[in-house]
Nucleic acid binder design. Sequence first.
DNA 1: GAATATAATGTAAGCGCTTTCATTTTGCTT
DNA 2: AAGCAAAATGAAAGCGCTTACATTATATTC
Lengths: 326, 326
Amino acid sequence: MEEVAKVAGVSVATVSRALRTPEAVSQKLRTRIEEVAQRLGYAPNRIAGSLAGARTPLIGVIVPSLTNSFFASTLEQMTTLFEARGYQLMIGQHGYDTDREERIVAAFASWNPSALVVTGRNHARGTLNTLSSAACPVVEMWDYGDRPLDSGIGFSNHGAGELAARFFAEQGLTRAAFVGAILDKDDRARARADGFSETFRRLTGTEPLTVTVSSRELGEGGAALKRVLAQQPDTTAIAFSGDMLAVGAMFEADRAGLSIPGDLKILGYGDLDIARHTNPRLTTIRPPHNEIGEAVVRHVLERLDRPDTPGINLDLGVKLILRETV
Amino acid sequence: MEEVAKVAGVSVATVSRALRTPEAVSQKLRTRIEEVAQRLGYAPNRIAGSLAGARTPLIGVIVPSLTNSFFASTLEQMTTLFEARGYQLMIGQHGYDTDREERIVAAFASWNPSALVVTGRNHARGTLNTLSSAACPVVEMWDYGDRPLDSGIGFSNHGAGELAARFFAEQGLTRAAFVGAILDKDDRARARADGFSETFRRLTGTEPLTVTVSSRELGEGGAALKRVLAQQPDTTAIAFSGDMLAVGAMFEADRAGLSIPGDLKILGYGDLDIARHTNPRLTTIRPPHNEIGEAVVRHVLERLDRPDTPGINLDLGVKLILRETV
DNA sequence: GAATATAATGTAAGCGCTTTCATTTTGCTT
DNA sequence: AAGCAAAATGAAAGCGCTTACATTATATTC
């Protein structure tokens, strides 16, 4: 920057202004400086800029997994939206490990970002500390509950489970099962499972079978179907905590000669693209993943533009997408 | 840090050393300083640290898309591996837009990261400039070719296309088609398409049909199948540039009453989890996605540990996974 | 115990910007 | 043309650390 200033015959302060706040510099100098910077291939050092300016154009976002397509799409959307406003996403991934989350949050906070976005409401002590003493907006996404740390934008997973159970109950289905993946680690899947069981029991007076599998992938869905049928042969409906599991079960049902929805009804969760294309098409519960990304960006931007904006707590709800498997 | 120093009764330099290079400080002071820092909840400011130290623990990685499961899994793997060594990934996503890539690369470079990892070999002029003047290792991943900018780790997509064509030709299949998504933007898919067409023509003397669809999603696979059959009704084999397209086509074939592989042979690309579970199971070409992530991390770490390590250019190759659709 | 080597600590100079405040220039008014 | 407000520019003080170098304490040798 010093060099640009020298060549352009101005002070570094003016160069900084010309680049940072062009409207504060005369037209003539602005163009001259820009031209020189261009010619010299000057690239500002953002680290120095951030140290001096006490703010970075960074937004830390922490998700459990990058390969989970919900988070991936939320992330992709947020990246694009924030980028348009000059912010850059700093993405972290902890694999459902709260200790790892704690370390990542601490690391992110030390870059003092413009905002911090984390997934879920359940965090380690240290994470809570770091987050609540962070000098920036903090939003907890993908979950709804009372009293967010600062802002919360998501939906009730427990509610999604209830919806599934109520739907089954209304159809007069009494022999049901819930299949969930890594319920011990994924709090959201756990909440859906609990919501389902509690509601189904309350509404039908019968206890649903719950089976847990070790991953969200297709193969486990097929395996789960076998286990459900082994443990409760007269099962007529299964709710899955993920569409991929449901699709895996459909493939398995196909192999086993079971007809869907005739012999067995299947309800997914996620409304992945594939749900619209299976034979028959998969009935599923749709979480508001696009809405979450948008709402997070909108809220963070608002907070950044007008720092006195208060935090919010949003429940974006889920939708039942009726197709052909129930 | 000043406060920690005051409370511990030492200079800030000592505090810095105690935290950064503990072995350079006496046992007694080290524990005292650590204890004070802990008690005061001191969190170092990484921005200041990086400015002073002239290097950041950041590794910039730029991919076309976060929702593409190959990149997502490479990214997830790299995150974990680098994290273990104290590096943090800075992830960028440009949606196959070279101008956007250029901006992101410039933005990333201005944080002067420890390394920069980009996807592919085809970049805008400005990207090339920034990358070649970057003061850190640069690796181009997911593609193979001669003369990488610095290091290259990937495989030949053209070769993957050739493999598919050769496989079809060996089976005596002469009426074939290639279905690719966004061939105008995705250079890797384009290379596979070209590799397929050239090789198929050379080997069988007949021109394969090529159809382009607008996304990598299932629905487009089904649509593509209809188009192929409309344009070339006697088609006996189709190679897809992605497994999801192939699965979409299988669903459509099912609806149309076509038997696979009897009436039509289908070859995917990607070896996604789903390929192992369809009925029949999908024959596909497997890119070395895990190997890429590992190799990139290993190489970058090596370069960082021993700065005189030269760049490399690795072709990790693809594998044909024989299953039941061809 | 003096002399010397070695380890531990402190001092202070930046790292490359941004921003406040002071100064100069410009554009209007009368 | 003088006078003033407003706009444009420059000087300089940091931002919170790291690290080269100087200094002091400690260990080792004879």
